[in-house]
Structures are given as structure tokens and as C-alpha cells.
């Protein structure tokens, strides 16, 4: 098992070098100048432009800027934002808990609904329920997120008034930023109603963000279950008179889970890298929106540092998924 993990880890270093090179090259290849963007219509004189370029280190040759950036990473320094002058790591740490909180809730929603729906669709293959699940999941998968979010918001927030429109907590609660996770902070604050408010603010964004992963999980679970349910050993188990739920949960599901875990792993990786549209619509202070804004402002250190951290997260999640395979299915562990 350790050898297996070590082999996986050894692939990480070249991946990182690739990522730093790629993000650095791409962001510098797009036309645009952070100083011009900052000044807008007003413009800056050539002298002032040169002075600012020197201050921000943008006047140096690109290879020098790249090595400076990599040297920084090695020392754990991702640089400072050209716009806010805050260290990139600080900005990331302020926003990341919000992304994690939303990602976890969306993942829980997707798994809680997607997994059972997929199992039941497989078990009740060909019935109305099966067809409905497949239709809903296809619709969910192809739903434009922006439209879906605004629709839910108009129905549940504006018309029915059941949920708040956007944000993380009602403005009447003045919650200290202790952990950055609003559910925990509001609970710790002890203010009456604060936790409930935080939960209610999470509902719509979690549903919106969880819709596509839910659809993917439901479809994958269904097809994987169908494959396993047609195996001989399942027929044998049934013939032996084992309770139907036991055949499904113990015999079939465990074997059907491998591809589902892969899919969940990939989805969680995507969720953690920030959901730009959901964050924008629900004014959710996460890292997706932060990265997009920094690209349009040509805030090089934020784009480079931010993408590197996000890539690290995805690599770590994938590694954990690989390890989870080994736990679920010992054959994978031994074969490698």
C-alpha cells in the first residue's frame, strides 16, 4: 500500500512543474497589461508606466519573472496581488473555507440524492421510476447553471420567501470570522437563529452546484449497478434465498461502487476548485470568482498562485480516490 502511494506521489513533482510553466505561459500570452487595466480610460504616461512596471517587477525578462516565481513557491511564497497588494496565500485562505463549505454541502446533496436514485433506477429497470430518474438526470446534466440558479432564486426566494436570495448569513448576525466556515462560526457565536440562517443560505447554492454532480452520479450508479446485477454470483446469491436488500447492498453495490467513486472524486475535485457561476449568482465569496476576476485584471501572481493551489487540491483529491479504490477493492492494490 505504501509503495503504491509512493509511486503515485512521485508523479506529482513533474505535474507541478508542468502546471507552473503552463499557467505562467498562458497568462502572459494573453494580450493585456495590468497597469493599463488598473488606470482605465484615464491612462498612464509612458514614464509612469515604466516606473510602475519596475515596481511590480514586470519590466524584467519573462524567464527571470518565471524563475522568481518558482523560487518563491519553493520558499512557500506565492507573491502579492498586483491590485490589492495582499499576499496571494492570505487572499486564498480567506476565501477557501467558503468554497469548501459549499462544495461539501453540494457533494452531500449530490451523493444523497444521486446514489439512491441510481440504485433504484437500476433495480426497477424499465419502470416509470427508471425512466423518470434518467430523464431528470439528463435534464440536470444539461441545465444552464446560471438560468437554473436564477429560476430557483425567483421561485423560492423572491416569490415564496422560503430561502434568502444570496450571501452566507443574514446581515443582522455579526459573526466573527473564527474558522471561516460559516456553519461552525455561527454555531460557535451562540447567537440565536444564526446557525439556522447560515443553513438556509446554503440550501439553494448547494442544490444548484450539486445538480450536475448529482445527475452524473445517478447515471453512473445506474449503469454500474445494472452491469453487476447481471453477474452470475448475484443470481447465485438470489437463488440461495438471501434477502433482496442484502443482495443489492452487500453483494452488488460494493462492486458497483468503483466507477462511482471515480466519478465522485472527479466531481469533488471540480467542486473544490470553485464554482464561478454559482458563486457569482449567490454572491458566494469563494475562489472561483476570485480567479476569474484576477484573470480579467491580469493580476499575474493571483492567477499563477491560485491555479497552482487549486491544481494541488485536485491532485490530492485524485490521490485519495486512488487510495479509496484500494480500500474498496483489494485487487487494485495488489495488482499495481
Amino acid at each position: 500500500m505504501f509503495q503504491f502511494i509512493f509511486r503515485r506521489l512521485s508523479l506529482v513533482i513533474p505535474t507541478f512543474i508542468g502546471i507552473t510553466l503552463l499557467t505562467f505561459t498562458l497568462i502572459h500570452m494573453i494580450p493585456g497589461d495590468p497597469i493599463e487595466v488598473m488606470a482605465g480610460e484615464r491612462g498612464v504616461s509612458p514614464e509612469r508606466h515604466a516606473e510602475l512596471s519596475a515596481q511590480l517587477g514586470l519590466d524584467k525578462p519573462l524567464y527571470e519573472q518565471y524563475f522568481h516565481y518558482v523560487a518563491g513557491i519553493v520558499q512557500g511564497d506565492l507573491g502579492e496581488s498586483l491590485v490589492t497588494h495582499e499576499p496571494v496565500m492570505n487572499e486564498f485562505m480567506t476565501l477557501f473555507p467558503a468554497t469548501v463549505e459549499l462544495a461539501v454541502c453540494a457533494a452531500i446533496f449530490a451523493i444523497l440524492i444521486g446514489l439512491p436514485a441510481g440504485i433504484f433506477a437500476a433495480v426497477k429497470r424499465g419502470t416509470i421510476f427508471d425512466h423518470s430518474v434518467m430523464t431528470f438526470s439528463l435534464t440536470g446534466y444539461s441545465m444552464p447553471i446560471f438560468w437554473w440558479a436564477l429560476l430557483l432564486m425567483l421561485v423560492f426566494s423572491v416569490t415564496l420567501g422560503w430561502t434568502p436570495v444570496s450571501g452566507r448569513i443574514d446581515v443582522v448576525y455579526w459573526i466573527d470570522n473564527t474558522t471561516g466556515f460559516m456553519l461552525i462560526d455561527s454555531w460557535l457565536s451562540g447567537e440565536e437563529g444564526a446557525f439556522k440562517s447560515a443553513v438556509s443560505h446554503l440550501i439553494l447554492p448547494s442544490i444548484v452546484l450539486g445538480t450536475i454532480p448529482m445527475a452524473v452520479i445517478a447515471r453512473m450508479t445506474r449503469s454500474s449497478m445494472l452491469e453487476v446485477l447481471s453477474e452470475d454470483y448475484i443470481r447465485t446469491a438470489r437463488a440461495k434465498g438471501i434477502a433482496p436488500w442484502r443482495v443489492i447492498v452487500i453483494h452488488a453495490l460494493r462492486n458497483a461502487l468503483i466507477p462511482v467513486i471515480t466519478v465522485i472524486g472527479l466531481q469533488v475535485g471540480t467542486l473544490l476548485s470553485g464554482a464561478i457561476l454559482t458563486e457569482t449568482v449567490f454572491a458566494w465569496p469563494g475562489i472561483g470568482k476570485w480567479l476569474i476576476e484576477s484573470i480579467s485584471r491580469r493580476d499575474y501572481p493571483v492567477v499563477q498562485g491560485g491555479i497552482l493551489i487549486v491544481a494541488t487540491i485536485i491532485i490530492v483529491v485524485n490521490l485519495l480516490v486512488d487510495i479509496a479504490y484500494g480500500v474498496v477493492n483489494p485487487r487494485i492494490r495488489h495488482n499495481r
Binding site: 446533496f109 440524492i113 426566494s157 422560503w162 443574514d170 439556522k196 443553513v199 440550501i203 442544490i207
Partner: peptide, 22 residues
Amino acid sequence: KKGLAALPFAVMAAAAISTSAH
């Protein structure tokens, strides 16, 4: 099946708060 479909709406209604409480 019914329970599953109704879950998000039930949570939503349970957690609904007065949005103009400030």
C-alpha cells in the same frame, strides 16, 4: 421515493427564515 424527491423542499421550508428581519 416520495421522501427523496421531497427532501430539498422539506429542508428549505424548515430552514426558511424571515429575510427582512434586519
